[in-house]
Structures are given as structure tokens and as C-alpha cells.
């Protein structure tokens, strides 16, 4: 089983109400600050992107459902900062600083603080996920494959990128993306464990009881560990 974030195919959602194309990027100031604080904290190097995704997924189902998008980011960030020992719980309850508040000693990680002159370079560099790997590709484009049950096989209840709706389904390899960092391992600080990543196509009819059209498909990017020959 996965968690509440894994909502592909779920029933019970209403219509989609698209914002206009020219709508502001951030509908309110704190959304922008939330995104920027999250990115700036990422630069401290205390977690990776898979751990950061998992931190949002690990919010309780009630919190995940109750909190809006950037509230989830803030909640997960606060949890990560404490879990990784960057902040203490009591830091989060600190009253706001005023002119009279004494300055705090600089944090040991302050040397890694992201400054404005480095922002463009950091955003342009990003975090590529392609790695050299010892794991040889087992499949080629055109091969039929079957996905395993969606679950992290290294950590019970851990992070995985195989959605529930695509578990135990048969599809066809469309392309090999090369070897990518394996989130099921990396999210839990068990190493990058890179392995081949494939785009795999599934007939909509093989995923859904009532597919809209016989020729429709869903394609997912899936790691070799998620697949077996069909």
C-alpha cells in the first residue's frame, strides 16, 4: 500500500477550474515565500529531493488532506529541519524577533547559506538524477513487462514512485531513460542505488474498469526494480 498522496485514478473529485493563463505565478505573497524558503533550505544540503518528497507524503493523512499545497511544503520542511537536526522543536515555537531581540549565534551550517549572487547558478545547475550504474538494463523498448505490487521493498511503508493504480499491471517498454537515482533507496538515505529507468506504456483498458477510449494509454517512468518480464 502507499499513502494518501497517491491519488491517480481516485474517484470523488470534482471539476477542474483552470486559472487564466496570465494569472499571477503566486496567488499570495506567502506562497512565494514558502517556495523560496524551501529552495533555500534545500541548498543547506541536509536532505535530497526524494527525502523531501517523502517528507510531504509522510504528513498524516488528515494533515495532507487539510493543508493547502504550500502549507504541506511548510509542514514537511519544518519536520525535516527538526528530524535532520538543523533546528530544535523549540525553535519553531520562537516568538517573532523584534528590534530588541538579542542576536542568535550563527548556526554551524550558516557557511552553506544560499546568498543572492549564487541563486542563478544553483537554479541553473539543478540536481541531475542520471548516474553511471552497475545494473545492466534488463529490458528493451518493445518488451512486455509487469509491474510488481506498489511498496518500498527496502523500508516497510517507505517512499516509492510506483503509483497504486499502476501496480500488478502489464505494459510495454517505450524507451530507456538511462540509469537514474532510485528514490526508494535515496529517500531513506540508503544510497542513490542508480538503476535503469524506463518509460512504460499501459493501455487505459488494462488500468481502468471503464476506460474512455480503446486506444488511450498512460505512460509512467518506472525503475527496473518495479518491473518483471511479462
Amino acid at each position: 500500500m502507499t499513502r494518501v498522496h497517491d491519488m491517480g485514478g481516485r474517484f470523488g473529485e470534482g471539476r477542474i477550474t483552470p486559472e487564466a493563463e496570465g494569472a499571477p505565478v503566486f496567488s499570495t505573497d506567502w506562497h512565494a515565500r514558502a517556495l523560496a524558503v524551501t529552495l533555500a533550505c534545500g541548498a543547506l544540503g541536509q536532505w535530497n529531493i526524494d527525502g523531501s518528497r517523502h517528507a510531504r507524503e509522510r504528513l498524516s493523512a488528515a494533515d495532507y488532506t487539510r493543508l493547502s499545497y504550500y502549507e504541506k511544503w511548510m509542514a514537511a520542511l519544518a519536520n525535516l529541519l527538526v528530524e535532520q537536526g538543523v533546528l530544535r522543536e523549540e525553535d519553531l515555537a520562537q516568538p517573532f524577533a523584534t528590534e530588541e531581540t538579542p542576536a542568535l549565534p550563527q548556526h554551524p551550517l550558516a557557511a552553506r547559506c544560499l546568498h543572492p549572487e549564487a541563486v542563478a547558478q544553483v537554479l541553473a545547475a539543478g540536481g541531475p538524477a542520471v548516474r553511471d550504474s552497475q545494473v545492466a538494463p534488463q529490458f528493451r523498448p518493445g518488451d512486455r513487462v509487469r509491474t510488481r505490487r506498489p511498496a518500498n521493498t527496502l523500508v516497510n511503508g517507505g517512499h516509492t514512485r510506483l503509483p497504486a493504480y499502476a501496480g500488478c499491471a502489464e505494459g510495454q517498454v517505450l524507451r530507456l531513460h538511462g540509469s537514474h537515482v532510485f528514490p526508494d533507496s535515496n529517500a531513506h538515505d540508503r544510497g542513490e542505488a542508480p538503476e535503469p529507468l524506463y518509460a512504460v506504456s499501459f493501455a487505459a483498458q488494462s488500468l481502468w474498469a471503464h476506460a474512455e477510449h480503446p486506444r488511450d494509454e498512460v505512460v509512467l517512468d518506472l525503475w527496473q526494480s518495479y518491473l518483471e518480464p511479462a
Binding site: F26, W30, A32, R33, A34, L35, A36, V37, L39, A40, C41, L44, Y70, E71, M74, L77, A78, L81, V86, L87, D91, L92, Q94, F96, A97, T101, A103, L104, P105, Q106, H107, L109, A110, C113, L114, H115, P116, A118, V119, A120, L123
Partner: peptide
């Protein structure tokens, strides 16, 4: 919530508000 996090992180020298402005 955002303001509280930004404040404590800034006071400890972990984030720079000018870098946040640049990201935004």
C-alpha cells in the same frame, strides 16, 4: 507559519532573505 520559519532560519544565518527575493 512561513514568517516564523523564515524568521528563525534567518536569525540563525541559515537563509538570506535577499536570496529568497532573488528566487521569487
Amino acid at each position: 507559519r512561513v514568517k516564523a520559519l523564515e524568521t528563525i532560519l534567518t536569525r540563525k544565518g541559515l537563509i538570506d532573505p535577499a536570496a529568497l527575493d532573488e528566487i521569487i
